[in-house]
Design a protein around this nucleic acid. Structure first.
Length: 302
DNA sequence: CTTGAGCGG
């Protein structure tokens, strides 16, 4: 047989109707030259009435010589012969459980039809939200006001939470820790003068002490960034602004329903000077495909 | 067009 009579035994030639899309599983490893096209196509004989099938194929061995490989298989009988003795033995075991009512081999796996609803616990209008509104005993009590609301910052009771405290923006003076824990009694006496009494941080000097300078927290150095592209996220903003100095917070407004960016955000700097430099450099700066607007933010309304 | 969500002893 001359070499010029050989056909290429590729799968592509056997399936001309298939498109020329490459399937990664069929990709050849491309180390070395692919000489397989020099070999005769594999020849399949049978299976005959006894289930005997022969495959004759040619390959190059490691030395680069052409070798002929003949594989003879007996289809059904071989399949059975492959089963181990233990596997054959297991076939005679009595069925149990639900399988008792099944045909032999009919079904090994049951398909569950149980419906499982997934919901975001905090989504507006979710069941979790509804039950909270309807059944929360605390919200009913809250109508009377003054229930258990003791501000940690100023120690006042019944008025506001810590986050709403009028003093919350005032930095407490660094002071020694007083090791007696707060009780309802001592908390009520928070503004008192007795020794060893717990005094809430906001009340330890500063807030009520005359002559003491009260430092504002860095909420002041809040920079508003608008005209952000849709896919700008907080890490991106941080990357952009951190070159000007320590950033204490980044925030990108996101539509709660769609998860899309609303195109603006805030960056807070530890130092006012850094914020100022960022504004000067970045306002009008081209970012992604848009021109940023960077300005001082006006304080958020509650 | 365009200034923030959410938590709780």
């Amino acid at each position: 047989m001359g070499i010029d009579t050989l056909q290429r035994p590729s799968s592509a030639s056997q399936k001309p109707s298939q498109s020329n899309k490459v399937r990664w599983g069929e990709l050849e490893e491309d180390d070395g030259e692919d000489l397989n096209f020099l070999l005769p196509p594999p020849l399949v004989i049978g299976p005959d009435e006894n289930g005997v099938k022969k495959v004759i194929e040619y390959k190059f061995n490691d030395e680069g010589n052409k070798v002929k490989i003949t594989t003879t298989t007996r289809i059904r009988k071989l399949a059975k012969a492959r089963l181990s003795k233990r596997a054959l033995e297991r076939r005679s075991w009595p069925k149990f459980g639900d399988a008792v009512h099944e045909d032999v081999g009919a079904r090994l796996t049951m398909v569950s039809t149980e419906e499982i609803l997934l919901e975001r616990p905090r989504a507006p209008g979710s069941k979790a939200e509804e039950t909270k509104v309807a059944g929360d005993p605390l919200s009913a009590l809250g109508k009377g006001g003054a229930v258990l609301m003791v501000c940690r910052t100023c120690g006042k009771k019944g008025d506001h939470w810590t986050s709403k405290c009028p003093y919350k923006d005032l930095a407490p003076q660094p002071e020694g820790f007083i090791d007696k824990p707060a009780t309802s009694e001592t908390t009520a006496a928070a503004s008192g003068t007795s020794k060893g009494t717990y005094v809430p941080p906001g009340a330890r000097g500063g807030a009520e002490r005359p002559g003491q300078e009260m430092r504002r927290r860095n909420e002041e150095n809040s920079v508003r960034v608008t005209n952000l592209s849709e896919d700008t996220r907080e890490p991106d903003l941080l990357e952009l602004f951190r070159t000007f100095g320590a950033v204490s917070r980044v925030y990108v407004a996101v539509d709660q329903k769609t998860g899309m960016s609303r195109g603006f955000g805030f960056v807070n700097f530890v130092n006012k000077e850094d914020a100022e430099r960022a504004i000067n450099k970045l306002n009008g700066y081209g970012y992604d495909n848009l021109i940023l607007r960077v300005e001082w933010a006006t304080p958020r309304a509650n």
